[in-house]
């Protein structure tokens, strides 16, 4: 071969040339403010992506969207048989209306668990989109958790219907339920930012997320009263009462059931958890913005 590779500019000269003609560096992480602004401009994209995904998730089966209600109901049925009928009544100590307690716990925890599980794979699931179009990657964890929020609506209506049938009539406290759900959403999104970055860097950890949520299902008090059990466990029990998942379930239940109490301090802690996790998760995700989509 007689051809020679052409001489190249030195790196300094290339940078000077780029600066002279106002070229921006590709693949560099934008500043946090500019990143947030471009994320805000893509809000329609984020929402369209979320609704499309929500619609697509239950397609490809005969019952279609009905599964959005059926799946949590069946899950609820399993827990009811095991913890409402098979287990001795002692496990239901300290709970007034077990059925309402269980349905709120199951449906809301399902939302948290699937939000965490899916946001871990947020980047990998949309890798083709990531490789095809340039947009702030934080769109992906947000749209994944929005999808879960959209899919939770029918289940929430069923939950309210069951609670009504069990004789819990609406009070002004019902108005706090959307607040509780909003706090849960923001907290899950914050965790989702952490998981999306961690799992995209180390895919192995994606396998551990469902295990972790499984563990949480048992310690967060989905089907027994964590407050009643905590008395036997000292400081560990106190920690279990104050950990975010148990706290959010308690907040949500307190809005619908008279026998569950949440203090003002509980609500303040719920807001605190959501804000701290959301802001730190967002920054943590943004720090690796230039690295997503490498594999």
């Amino acid at each position: 071969m007689t051809v020679q590779p052409p001489p190249a500019l030195s790196s300094a000269a290339a940078a000077a040339l780029a600066a002279k003609y106002g070229l921006r560096r590709i693949g560099a992480r934008p500043p946090l403010g500019a990143y947030t602004a471009s994320l805000w401009r893509r809000r329609d994209f984020t929402w369209t992506l979320a609704t499309s995904d929500a619609y697509g998730k239950n397609q490809g089966s005969y019952l279609g969207q009905v599964w959005g209600v059926l799946k949590p109901l069946l899950q609820f049925g399993v827990f009811f048989v095991v913890f409402g009928l098979l287990m001795p009544a002692g496990t239901r100590a300290g709970i007034g209306d077990f059925l309402s307690y269980l349905v709120i716990g199951t449906f809301l925890f399902e939302f948290m668990a699937s939000g965490l599980n899916n946001s871990g794979r947020a980047i990998a699931a949309k890798i083709k989109l990531v490789r095809a179009l340039e947009f702030p990657r934080a769109v992906l964890p947000i749209s994944v958790t929005c999808t879960e929020l959209i899919m939770m609506w029918p289940a929430t209506l069923v939950m309210l219907a069951i609670v009504l049938v069990r004789g819990h009539y609406p009070t002004w406290r019902w108005l706090l339920l959307p607040c509780a759900i909003a706090l849960i959403y923001l907290f899950v999104l914050g965790c989702g930012f952490f998981l999306a970055r961690i799992v995209s860097a180390t895919p192995d950890l994606g396998n551990l997320v469902p295990i972790a949520t499984q563990l949480l299902r048992f310690v967060a008090g989905v089907f027994f009263s964590i407050e009643t059990l905590a008395a036997d466990f000292g400081w560990l029990g106190q920690a279990a009462i104050l950990e975010p998942f148990a706290l959010y379930l308690r907040l949500a239940r307190s809005t619908l059931m008279a026998e569950v109490h949440a203090s003002g301090a509980d609500w303040a802690m719920g807001v605190g958890y959501a804000l701290v996790v959301l802001v730190s998760g967002y920054i943590y995700f943004w720090l690796a913005e230039a690295r997503y989509g490498r594999d």
Partner: peptide
């Protein structure tokens, strides 16, 4: 070059 694939070294500047 399109900013869709992170690079390990060097730089790309575009308008």
């Amino acid at each position: 070059m399109a900013g869709l694939m992170p690079y390990s070294d060097g730089a790309v500047y575009a308008q």
